[in-house]
């Protein structure tokens, strides 16, 4: 392979990483807010799946991406509110409620997809045009970086903009300070006049909405179709991304793009026809996740009150 071909290969890989990374980035940024306030929501897998389903169905039936996105956000909000109520107000175990949310989402999306758009065992293939790319004038002409960064869809740009915004909110505003206080030492935050419950509700809902958008990204911006259980563990990988990113939005960005690249690499190797059995390539992102959370001993960086219900 000559140099030009190698550069092209890397460029295509990076382009794909910026298409496959954003669903993880949305979900992981949202989860960063939730975990910073002391809430671990493993239900984001289900929230993403719900977002993917509603995003697709909304767009498919009205032809409007905005309606699709709106339905995804609305669905995620409803489930996020249920999660918040059970874990924050009722103080149920967060892992258990998250697991229940995942099972529920798998069931309800599968049920409505089959009853509305398919048979009992077979599913009619339906699809929509994926979200159009929106090249940014001038910037998209930059060699190499242009196509990677500036010839993407609106939802990719939004995801990238959310990174500095999230960092700013968490690290540079009074609200962010309150979030961190609630996640580290809720009793002290409470004493200082911060409403622990309100902050946790807010962060859980931010997490839910972003997970819903991340899921909708998968169906309306990436594949243009819905498949049962199409998130295939991306919500769980987003949990790992938060750990790798050490609960910092910029770290999360790097983590999400790394996993985006590992998904992209896996797909490219499959189509390139290597000798490696395709199942090994499919398993690659999941193995990388295990290695990554193992290699980064970041339990120390975790918010101290993570997963601990607060009794005011």
């Amino acid at each position: 392979m000559d140099l030009a071909a190698a550069i092209l290969w890397v460029r295509l890989l990076l382009e794909a990483a910026f298409r496959l990374g954003p669903p993880l980035l949305y979900a992981a940024l949202g989860e960063t807010f939730a975990e910073r306030s002391g809430i671990i929501n493993i239900g984001i897998e289900g929230l993403m799946l719900t977002g993917a389903f509603l995003g697709f169905i909304g767009t498919f039936s009205t032809g409007s991406y905005l309606v699709g996105l709106g339905s995804a956000v609305a669905g995620a909000l409803v489930l996020g509110l249920a999660f918040a109520f059970l874990t924050i107000t009722v103080r149920a175990n967060q892992i258990v409620v998250g697991a229940a949310l995942n099972i529920f989402s798998l069931g309800i999306t599968g049920f409505f997809f089959r009853t509305s758009y398919g048979g009992l065992t077979t599913v009619r293939a339906i699809s929509i045009e994926t979200l159009p790319l929106l090249p940014i004038p001038l910037l998209s002409d930059i060699p190499f970086l242009g196509p990677v960064l500036f010839q993407q869809s609106l939802l990719v740009y939004l995801a990238l903009l959310l990174v500095p915004l999230s960092f700013f909110i968490i690290h540079r505003t009074a609200l962010g300070l309150a979030i961190q206080a609630v996640g580290e030492y809720p009793r002290a935050a409470d004493t200082a006049g911060i409403n622990v419950y309100r902050i946790r509700y807010l962060c859980t809902l931010i997490g839910a909405v972003l997970a819903g958008i991340g899921g909708a990204f998968l169906s309306i911006a990436h594949t243009g179709t819905f498949i049962e259980n199409m998130t295939a563990g991306r919500g769980f990988i987003a949990l790992a991304v938060v750990i790798l990113g050490r609960w910092n939005p910029y770290g999360v960005l790097i983590g999400a793009l790394t996993f985006g690249a590992s998904f992209a690499l896996q797909l490219r190797l499959q189509t390139a026809g290597t000798q490696v059995p395709y199942q090994f390539l499919q398993a690659l992102p999941y193995i990388v996740t295990i290695l990554a959370v193992t290699a980064f001993r970041s339990r120390i960086a975790a918010p101290k009150a993570l997963a601990v219900p607060y009794t005011g």
């Binding site: 009722v90 529920f104 069931g107 309800i108 049920f111 049962e228």
Partner: peptide
């Protein structure tokens, strides 16, 4: 009726259990 309905009901059952059990604690 698609059999995936069971997942939906199972998810609901756990959510209700968590809700009811914790309500009693409260």
């Amino acid at each position: 009726i698609p059999v995936v309905l069971v997942f939906m009901i199972q998810g609901l059952v756990i959510l209700f259990i968590m809700g009811y059990a914790a309500r009693r604690l409260l």
